[in-house]
Amino acid sequence: MTAAVVAGCSQSADVSSRIAAEAAKAQTIDLAALTPFAWDRALVFGPYASTDRICAALPKSFAECAKSYPQGVGEGSYLLTFIRDSRVVHHELHSRRHGEFCKNSCVLELSPETARFTVGVSSSVPDRKHFSPATR
């Protein structure tokens, strides 16, 4: 059910696949460059993030929050949310197989200027990519 809701949110952009493709060929990824829509704030929720935590962090105008993520974020995913002018403009699940942003239950808050990551090898799964905040 969750996948159908996520797919219905925005069929024009599969950001997770773009991230995976970029991480396979580059040493850094720029999340803002990989999104075909404008945003001013992004939140990345790690595995095991609860529905309460997700919905509390998102704008109150995102009325579909609890319906979209009734069990929170599962073990194998991250939730990517993109916000513009206090509205969620895109949200989707990002598979850990496409790269790991942070440890369990983390929340990253990013702006287009800070959404740059260095690509490395995951310490937990050697054939999986890990993203660390890039230094300027």
Rank of each mutant, 00 (worst) to 15 (best):
T2P: 04
T2M: 09
A3H: 15
A3S: 14
A4C: 02
A4K: 13
V5P: 07
V6L: 14
V6D: 10
G8D: 12
G8Q: 03
C9L: 03
C9Q: 07
C9R: 05
S10R: 03
Q11T: 07
Q11K: 13
A13T: 08
A13F: 08
D14Q: 08
D14W: 04
S16W: 12
S17R: 09
S17A: 15
R18D: 04
A20N: 11
A20I: 08
A21C: 03
A23P: 11
A24C: 05
A24W: 00
A24D: 06
A24L: 06
A24M: 08
A24Q: 07
K25V: 14
K25R: 14
A26E: 15
Q27M: 05
T28L: 07
T28I: 08
I29P: 08
D30G: 12
L31F: 12
A33G: 04
A33L: 02
A33E: 11
L34E: 11
T35Q: 12
T35W: 09
T35E: 12
P36I: 06
P36T: 10
F37P: 08
D40H: 05
D40T: 08
A42Y: 05
V44M: 07
V44F: 10
S50H: 14
D52A: 15
D52W: 10
D52M: 11
R53P: 03
R53C: 07
A56V: 14
A56M: 09
A57Q: 09
L58G: 14
L58S: 14
L58Y: 11
F62T: 03
A63N: 03
E64V: 04
C65G: 04
K67D: 04
K67L: 09
K67H: 02
S68G: 10
S68A: 12
S68W: 06
S68E: 06
Y69W: 14
P70Y: 08
Q71L: 10
V73A: 00
V73H: 01
V73L: 04
G74F: 07
E75H: 11
G76E: 09
S77Q: 12
Y78H: 15
L80I: 05
T81V: 15
T81P: 01
T81E: 03
F82N: 07
F82S: 10
I83R: 10
I83W: 05
R84C: 00
D85S: 14
D85W: 13
V88K: 12
V89W: 12
V89G: 06
H90G: 09
H91T: 14
H91E: 13
E92F: 05
E92M: 07
H94S: 10
H94A: 13
R96E: 11
R96C: 13
H98G: 06
H98P: 01
G99V: 00
G99L: 02
F101R: 02
F101T: 00
F101I: 03
C102F: 13
K103C: 01
K103A: 04
N104K: 05
S105T: 08
V107W: 02
E109W: 02
S111A: 00
S111W: 01
P112N: 07
P112T: 05
P112K: 04
F117M: 02
F117K: 00
V119Y: 07
G120A: 06
G120T: 09
S123C: 03
S124C: 04
V125S: 02
P126S: 05
P126N: 01
P126M: 01
D127Y: 04
D127Q: 09
R128I: 15
H130A: 08
P133S: 01
P133D: 01
A134F: 02
A134E: 07
A134M: 02
T135R: 04
